[in-house]
Design a protein around this nucleic acid. Structure first.
Ligand SMILES: [Mn+2]
Ligand SMILES: [Mn+2]
Ligand SMILES: [Zn+2]
Ligand SMILES: [Zn+2]
Lengths: 139, 139
DNA sequence: CTCTCAACTTATAATAATTATAAATTCATA
DNA sequence: TATGAATTTATAATTATTATAAGTTGAGAG
């Protein structure tokens, strides 16, 4: 659980960090820093946006979570640090996990003299929910 | 050439747009808006950053060039609008084209109900030049 | 258990790429 | 060559994020 992940990294166990990790744990929505802040603020009235940003940065650099930069304006966060495909719906802006067949690559590897240590794969389009929505309108 | 691309889109032919398109044409460096501005400013003293941003946005939306968002802070631009892999060197920050084998996908396609209209594939690591550099130091 | 202090949180200011606004200029065509 | 919509420009505004500095606290030492 979150407690162990923090201890293993030599990080202090604070209520704010626990709350952020617990909010992210098993969360499939890939929330932004601001969304995380908004969701926790009611239960942690003293919480500051800077703490959310700091915590997310520390955990991302430690490899405990990954930044998802599928949108141009803000970062989103994923408690699963393993590389996997992401999909952004251009209608509802939702971010989904999306694994596409031949794209499972083990890093590091070398291509044409380039040492590849990591990669991101982002898909853009229309999600199942929004496709269903437009079908309904056409009927 | 650039003249025809602009005419085809119904865009006015201005010296600024021609200069931007010509700078990008066949350019493998994937420059940022600010780099484009800096390089053109000496020859176009009246040039404004806003014009560079506007032109790049218009041309990107028209599908004449692509935005490369491989870095978190700024966008880079590529006169080749076709999807292809990019590589960012964490040492020198250079951006290279990098095509990796099983990753040529034709859009649009559908996966698990998601309609994929486009995608980006970004690689991160150390480029050939910087690998050579660190080898030299070790000798 | 309580002392201590580096680590942490917080409020606030600063940063920086980009976007918006509005006035001046210019391309294109009649 | 005159016209007007499109474009350029200077400038201000935006906004996610980062930096700063002062106050607070978690956790090990004693
Ligand atoms: Mn994910
Ligand atoms: Mn390219
Ligand atoms: Zn959707
Ligand atoms: Zn390099």
């Amino acid at each position: 659980m979150a407690v162990n992940r923090l201890k293993k990294l030599g990080l202090k166990l604070t209520p704010q960090r626990l709350a952020i990790l617990n909010l992210l744990e098993g969360n499939k929505k890939h929330p932004s820093a601001e969304e995380i802040y908004s969701q926790l603020k009611p239960r942690f009235p003293s919480l500051s946006p800077a703490t959310v940003y700091n915590t997310l940065e520390v955990l991302a650099k430690a490899g405990e979570l990954q930044e998802v930069r599928i949108r141009g304006d803000k970062k989103h966060f994923d408690s699963n640090p393993a590389p996997h495909g992401h999909f952004l719906c251009r209608i509802c802006q939702s971010i989904y996990d999306l694994d596409v067949e031949p794209l499972e690559m083990q890093t590091p590897f070398s291509v044409k003299g380039h040492l590849v240590e990591g990669y991101t794969l982002y898909f853009y389009g229309i999600c199942p929910v929004c496709q269903e929505g437009s079908k309904t309108k056409l009927n």
